[in-house]
Design a protein around this nucleic acid. Structure first.
Lengths: 221, 221
DNA sequence: ACAATAATGTCAGCCACTGACAGTTGACAA
DNA sequence: TTGTCAACTGTCAGTGGCTGACATTATTGT
């Protein structure tokens, strides 16, 4: 078995591949269900493995760490975002393109996720992540790797080189910081619909420019 | 023993306090020395404890996790930054105050650190952190907690409430993202002097406003 | 000098994670 | 269909981070 298991491509394959996918998805479901219910720390790998009726060792052949299984779905969402970004018209300014790509990604998020787990479970997962220190750390690290990807994409749009011109990384840093902030606030609020997080995101992204520009005392939020 | 151990205050105390400080600092030195030499993952707590001639259990009474000991010095630096920020004149705009505080903190960083470990070791530690996934994650999490503090301070300066007005968190998010970027670039470059990281930081901070404002194609970096 | 208190060591144990080896099962050709 | 190969899985033993419980040692205030 290979660790890659790039999400949506094991469709037209033999029995072996299908079985693998079943186990893979079942592990995700079991892990998320157990973790969101009783907490990440209070859930052991043995429990998850047992729920799917495989050995602990097998779990680790599908996911290299306990954290990995938690972010398996997130990974798909991120991939879609990157695609959306690359599809934005070249005329859009960097921050504008980022904004539009992320809003698009939220829009049809439901369909993609539902094929693996109930969207509602995914939303609960998101909140669990934000309230579990170890997962917050992992989430941040993953985000920072994603930032690198995005910065490269932005640089390509603008015909720049990420290594020599710091501006792509700077916008992306600001953008990501704000994205994370939006996610956190959404998690804290009781509301956990897709619409609600989309709205929060939009609102905060549109706040970047005025907030950075200064002049806070002259204009209301 | 209490977990606090707020760095510079066990000075005028009895033998017990002094001994505690000695062990505490010795553990930091041993840990950083060993980790920077042979790598974080390839260094066990037993090795560190043995180097200081205490039991593994005692290590964990001083530092709750293996990561903690790595960030012990960073913690002091951060505290100084927060102090510097709170001392900035109210006339400065948020981003301006952040910029000046961080540059000031870099300035007299040497003195503070040298009382615990050689500055050179601290610099090597910084680079080790950036090249160790687990530590990058921990570093990011710590930073995000610091962001919360800073955002509150900014809000206070501007007479705002962090909970209702998102702007303090937005600037801080942008600011922190850029700070981290500067740190990473500095770590990748061979140069590891305090001056060099200070210069990198300054340059990137001054790039925030133009990068966010857009109009990249009209002005050179 | 003597309790009271705090720091340390020892030990047993949980859990994430890994390597090695053996058993099982699906794929594919003869 | 059958037999072989390769992939997947289970078992087991072991490492390392981390914790609770309890006994031991050291410091402090009286």
């Amino acid at each position: 078995m290979r660790a890659e298991m790039t999400p949506r491509e094991g469709l037209r394959c033999g029995l072996r591949e299908r079985k693998k996918r079943r186990t893979h998805d079942a592990l995700i479901r079991a892990a998320l269900e157990l973790c969101t219910q009783q907490g990440y720390d209070r859930t052991t790998i043995d429990e998850i493995a047992e729920a799917v009726d495989v050995s602990q060792r097998t779990f680790f052949r599908y996911f290299t760490t306990k954290e990995d299984v938690v972010f398996a779905v997130q990974e798909i969402v991120e991939a879609r975002f990157v695609d959306a970004l690359e599809a934005r018209p070249a005329a859009e300014a960097p921050l504008e393109a980022l904004r539009n790509a992320v809003l698009l990604a939220w829009d049809d998020l439901g369909q993609v996720i539902e094929s693996i787990i109930p969207v509602e479970l995914h939303m609960r997962t998101y909140q669990m992540i934000e309230s579990t220190p170890a997962l917050v750390a992992a989430h941040l690290r993953r985000s920072s790797e994603l930032e690198e990807l995005i910065a490269t994409a932005i640089a390509r749009r603008e015909g720049l080189d990420v290594e020599t011109d710091p501006r792509p990384r700077i916008v992306v840093a600001a953008f990501s910081g704000v994205m994370r902030l939006a996610g956190r606030l959404w998690g804290e609020a009781g509301e956990c619909s897709v619409e609600s997080i989309r709205a929060t995101t939009e609102q905060h992204l549109d706040g970047i420019v005025p907030a950075i520009a200064g002049e806070w005392r002259k204009s209301a939020p």
